[in-house]
Design a protein around this nucleic acid. Structure first.
Lengths: 201, 201
DNA sequence: TCGGCGCCCTGACAAATGTCATCGGCCCTT
DNA sequence: AAGGGCCGATGACATTTGTCAGGGCGCCGA
């Protein structure tokens, strides 16, 4: 029996995945959690073999939760199951110690197999996404640029970003300008969009 | 037996929901589709009692697909199952003839009940969302303002929007200014965000 | 028929944004 | 020790954006 932990913020999806995987005779869902913060504790309690982890979750995100799990329980494998095929997500997930990465529009029949492969110690990666990741490459943004761009996501003005980050307005404009250049965007909004779609934020 | 059609672009979620609902002895998933365009034809072929419809789908969106179905097969009920609890979505869904509206973070156990209620002709609406919808109200934007704001989503400049919509730059700026005022935003980007989160785009 | 509203346009203005050159400080690698 | 990258800052500049006051057109309901 392969013991599974499901981490996904959408209760309906969580329950549905549980139903789907429980159909397999060699799989057993031993716990479900709805936030990244709860993952580590659940792993401690239930000792699953494989964690199915969503990336976008309230509290701790799936990548960070993966790091936690891998640090505390190296024997536990993590299979990322996410909506968005952001190239940067894949890269960061693998660096965080994930064993597999599956997007939510893969056929349902393949999920159980992915779980089994991961459990055997193999790596499972969406081939399309893997090439995308190579094309998009690593984030060209410096940490500070990333931070400023992230702060610009909600449509804040330069002044707002500056005060939130305790920076001068000029500095914020410089970082934004650099980010715009590196993302080959024409303005802040475009830069945010392309950075986001590459998983750089 | 209640016959079901699932419409959701994410194959994994579709399959998982199918597994979940098939556990109920009185429910039967007779077909699945992954795009809005395919819904009507699938209804014609399989004559389901209830359609579980996602809102965000490639091609035709769930709301429009709901309209189509209701127009062609008035006896078929539609239950919207969506990720985002945008107030505007609820309003438009009900106007399009949906019988119910459920967000994906409701407990899995309630889904089957929602399906049964809808099948009986009752309306099923998330109570939290219903009040939100009342608070947010209908979109204050005129059709043209909506269109311009929608065109601004990708970070285009005024010039870009103007040329795409065959308008003068001044007109675009005026529409944007009006939209910014009505959404009580400080900014084009903010206006886009609040309009989006209210389901006005 | 008149007023109101949406739509499109113009022109003008203030404010915000994006770019560039330049500086100093820090840390790291060579 | 020297260069290079990142960070923070300044000042100046052109461009874009947002606002406001107008004007004209067409449609619709009172």
């Amino acid at each position: 029996m392969i013991r599974l932990l499901l981490a996904d913020d959408q209760a309906l999806v969580r329950g549905a995945l549980s139903a789907l995987l429980s159909l397999e005779s060699d799989l057993e869902v031993v716990a479900e959690v709805g936030s990244g913060d709860a993952v580590l504790e659940a792993v401690r309690q239930h000792r699953p073999d494989v964690v199915l982890m969503d990336v976008e979750m309230p509290g701790l995100d799936g990548i960070s939760a993966t790091e936690q799990v891998r640090a505390a329980f190296p024997g536990t494998r993590v299979l990322i199951v996410t909506t968005f095929g952001r190239p940067g997500f894949l890269r960061r997930a693998m660096q965080a110690g994930a064993s597999g990465f599956v997007v939510k529009d893969t056929p349902a029949a393949q999920l159980a197999d992915a779980v089994r492969r991961v459990h055997e110690g193999l790596r499972v990666v969406d081939p399309v996404l893997a090439t995308d990741s190579l094309v998009a490459g690593e984030s060209p943004l410096t940490p500070r640029e990333t931070e400023v761009l992230r702060a610009a996501r909600d449509g804040s003005s330069v002044a707002g970003i500056a005060s939130r980050l305790f920076l001068s307005e000029g500095t914020v404009r410089n970082h934004l300008s650099a980010a715009i250049g590196k993302t080959q965007a024409a303005n802040r909004a475009e830069a945010v969009l392309t950075a986001e779609s590459n998983g750089w934020l």
